[in-house]
C-alpha cells in the first residue's frame, strides 16, 4: 500500500506514469468512467479548501466512485479532541482511500502511519501539497510536450510559497531545467531551498527583482500571490505589489509560446485582461488538477 505525503515519495518513473495515465484519461474519459465503481474516497478537510476538496471529489466521481467526508474541523470529531491517528483508523473502516487537508504540518504523515488505506496529502499547512505539484507537472507536460529543457521563472512570494518549493524540488530531478527567481528582497527563496536543492543538484538559477528584465528568456512563468501580511509596512507592500502584477503590456517582450501558470486563488497579481491571452494556462491548470488526481487515485488504489 502506498501513500502520497511528499512529492518525493514518488520516483520520476512513477510521476511519469501518473502523468501518462492523466493524459490517457483526458483522451479517453469514458474508458475510466467506472474504474473506481464501488470505491469510496474520504475527504478529511480539517480546514476549508473548497477548490482542492471539489477537485478530489470531482476526480473520484468521474472515476465512478463515491465520496464522503467533512470540510472543516468543527464538523468532525477533531472538535471533540480526537487525534488524527484515531480518526484515520475509524475512517479506514469506511473508505478505500483518503485525501487529507490539515492546518498542522505533518498531520497527513501521522495519518499514513496509522492508516490501513492509502492517504493523500491534500495540503498540510505551509508544508507540502504534492497534488498541486502533480498538477503543475501535468500542465507543463501538456503545454510544452516535455518535462526537460526549459527556463521557468517563479515570480512573487518565493519565501512562503510552498507550491514553488515543491515544484522546484520536483523539477530538480529532470534535465535541462533553468530557474529564474523573481521576487522582492523580502520574499526571496529561502537559502536552505537554494542550498539543499538548487546548489546540491547543480540546477542553474538566477535571482532578480525585475520581472521585465527576464521576461524574454522565459518558457514558463509561474506567478504566485504576494500577500499583504508578509510586509512590515503598507507603503512597502503597495510599492512592491505593483511591480509583480502581470499585465498585457508586460507580456509584450515575452515569447510567443510562453506558458503562464498560477496555483490560484489569484487576487490582483495577474490582470484580468491577461486571461484572454492564449498563453494564460491557469484555468487549464485547474482542469489538469482533476485529471492528475484521477490518475493518482487509480495508482494508489491499484485499479489499473
Amino acid at each position: 500500500m502506498r501513500h502520497l505525503i511528499d512529492i518525493l515519495d514518488l520516483s520520476v518513473e512513477e510521476i511519469n506514469e501518473i502523468l501518462a495515465t492523466a493524459e490517457d484519461i483526458i483522451a479517453n474519459p469514458a474508458k475510466y468512467a467506472h474504474s473506481c465503481a464501488g470505491k469510496q474516497l474520504a475527504t478529511l478537510f480539517y480546514e476549508p479548501s473548497t477548490r482542492t476538496r471539489l477537485s478530489f471529489e470531482s476526480a473520484m466521481l468521474s472515476l465512478g466512485g463515491e465520496v464522503l467526508g467533512f470540510s472543516e474541523a468543527s464538523s468532525s470529531s477533531a472538535s471533540k479532541g480526537e487525534s488524527v491517528a484515531d480518526t484515520i483508523r475509524v475512517i479506514s473502516c469506511y473508505a478505500d482511500i483518503v485525501a487529507m487537508r490539515h492546518p498542522k504540518e505533518g498531520a497527513p504523515m501521522v495519518a499514513s502511519m496509522y492508516s490501513t488505506i492509502p492517504v493523500i496529502n491534500a495540503g498540510d499547512g505551509g508544508h507540502n501539497h504534492p497534488t498541486q505539484t502533480l498538477t503543475d507537472l501535468l500542465t507543463i507536460k501538456r503545454e510544452k510536450g516535455r518535462l526537460k529543457d526549459f527556463t521557468i521563472g517563479f515570480c512573487g512570494d518565493l519565501k512562503f510559497g510552498r507550491t514553488v518549493h515543491s515544484l522546484i524540488e520536483a523539477l530538480s530531478r529532470y534535465e535541462g531545467i533553468n530557474i529564474v527567481l523573481i521576487s522582492p528582497e523580502e520574499l526571496k527563496l529561502p537559502s536552505y531551498v537554494k542550498k539543499e536543492i538548487l546548489k546540491a543538484k547543480n540546477i542553474p538559477y538566477t535571482q532578480t527583482t525585475d520581472l521585465l528584465e527576464v521576461m524574454p528568456q522565459l518558457d514558463i512563468l509561474y506567478m504566485t500571490r504576494v500577500q499583504k501580511e508578509r510586509f512590515f509596512s503598507e507603503e512597502e507592500y503597495l510599492r512592491l505589489r505593483d511591480s509583480y502584477i502581470l499585465t498585457v503590456e508586460k507580456l509584450e517582450t515575452a515569447k510567443k509560446d510562453l506558458t503562464i501558470m498560477h496555483p490560484l486563488p489569484r487576487v490582483n497579481e495577474i490582470s484580468v485582461a491577461v486571461d484572454n491571452d492564449p498563453r494564460a494556462c491557469y484555468f487549464k491548470q485547474v482542469q489538469n488538477g482533476k485529471y492528475a488526481r484521477m490518475a493518482l487515485i487509480l495508482k494508489l488504489l491499484e485499479v489499473l
Binding site: 487525534s83 490539515h102 492546518p103 498542522k104 504540518e105 505533518g106 498531520a107 504523515m109 508544508h127
Partner: peptide
C-alpha cells in the same frame, strides 16, 4: 515549529 502536528497531538 509551532505549526507542527506535534504541538497539538501531545502523545506523538
Amino acid at each position: 515549529n509551532p505549526r507542527c502536528i506535534t504541538t497539538i497531538e501531545q502523545e506523538l
